[in-house]
Design a protein around this nucleic acid. Structure first.
Lengths: 230, 230
DNA sequence: ATCTTGCCATAGCAACGTTATATATCAATG
DNA sequence: CATTGATATATAACGTTGCTATGGCAAGAT
């Protein structure tokens, strides 16, 4: 009928599905709702994808791409630990502000053989940031991938507790801060230096994202999702 | 028709629902399947509960009770850090062996005003274990609840990565081990003492659970669920 | 000009959670 | 003992879900 986008129904499906999941949660993503929003029929889903799960996989993949870009935008300075902290905060807040996306990508992903490559791309930003800390002498030599993995899992634990409602966002920020410093110290950084660098990275993060005073009651949705797809 | 249990249809519903979720995942818990297994009609759900979500809340509550008992069974020795490690391992393996229960209780719980009291009971075991470490001089003075919370979130982060398929169970065990030691060291324990105590607690855990060689490919389900309800 | 191919709308199916209605069972009461 | 009231259950149905079968339409190829 309306034929909203002659070329790119597939992209419209991914984009609309991502928006529905991000803004209203996974339950809002139904075949008929999706078709209605895109301006087509439910059949479009099955001509362009194998089904709802397949579409969700595409949404997750798209989200990993945006996350990679988002994390890669964090600038590198002379303080690699502050940079690492900034990457950590960028990840943390993107998860808080898009908790539904966080859940379908990290917490309860569908089985997907091809996810490793795209998740690795975003994860690689973190690994590189850790590697820089080692290269520049802040951390004692060690496996950057394993260290990045531990940082990532630690942050996810805090994020799960936060998004599941066990702790507030403010408490999550504090614990994330302390636990990350604990790990960095274990990796060899001087406790005081880690403290200063983490405070630096946190300040940078707060300065960059215009106005997220840590007391935001409800997370702002669509922060990253609002950016146009590649 | 069959009238399997004259008194206790409500308990049968909880038990059967718990079994279905634990053994086959949340998708296996449907009204008709549940009614079929219990030997009644779908109406039983709505006479004894307000609906499926309400039943799931009861299942989660029952699970918290069993988890409390399970953790409280960990014996206390002269080494409080080894005891804490043993509690951590008990929690870790109960989550791995009953990952569906872990998810509906910790990762994606339903909104429930009364959950705090029952979750707190299980969480209290961990807090007390941390408090003992402080009381006996292994950790510097500090908030035991906050420290227990950090240990809990850290473990959940590893468990989520494990149950979501990002890392293997064996890797999860190693990372859990290292990250917990990192936190304990930050809390003031001597790194070498922490290492020894954690090895001790881990050995105790492996000795107690008859035969879970860390290379178990598929988690053994129904470990805790198999215990009869109180 | 006909055939083929790909995309989409309509309609429908099985299964889901939930509800309405009617029947059965049992305690209490006259 | 008979009757009433309440509770629990079985049957059937409703609205919605993901998904599929079918038919038609438009464009490219021969």
């Amino acid at each position: 009928m309306s034929r909203t986008a002659d070329a790119g129904v597939r992209l419209a499906l991914i984009e609309t599905a991502a928006r529905l999941v991000a803004q209203e949660g996974p339950d809002a993503l139904t075949t008929r709702r999706l078709a209605s929003e895109v301006g087509t029929s439910t059949m479009a889903l099955y001509t362009h994808f194998e089904g709802m799960d397949d579409l969700l996989r595409a949404v997750r993949l798209e989200w990993f791409n945006r996350l990679s870009n988002h994390l890669a935008e964090v600038p590198q300075t002379a303080d690699p630990v502050a940079d690492l902290a900034a990457v950590g905060w960028a990840y943390f807040f993107s998860a808080v502000e898009n908790e539904h996306m966080f859940r379908i990508t990290v917490v309860e992903p569908l089985p997907d053989p091809g996810v490793a490559t795209h998740a690795t791309e975003a994860f690689g930003v973190l690994v590189n940031s850790v590697q820089r800390c080692t290269d520049e002498g802040r951390l004692r030599p060690g496996d950057a991938t394993a260290r990045a993995l531990q940082i990532w899992m630690m942050g996810n634990g805090v994020l799960v507790a936060c998004t599941a409602g066990f702790i507030t966002v403010d408490d999550a920020i504090d614990h994330f801060y302390e636990m990350a410093r604990s790990l960095l110290t274990t990796f060899g950084d001087d406790p005081e230096s880690a403290k200063k660098s983490f405070a630096r990275g946190r300040r940078r993060m707060e300065r960059q994202t215009k106005s997220p005073p840590p007391g935001t009651p409800s997370p702002r949705l669509g922060h990253i999702v609002a950016t146009p797809p590649a």
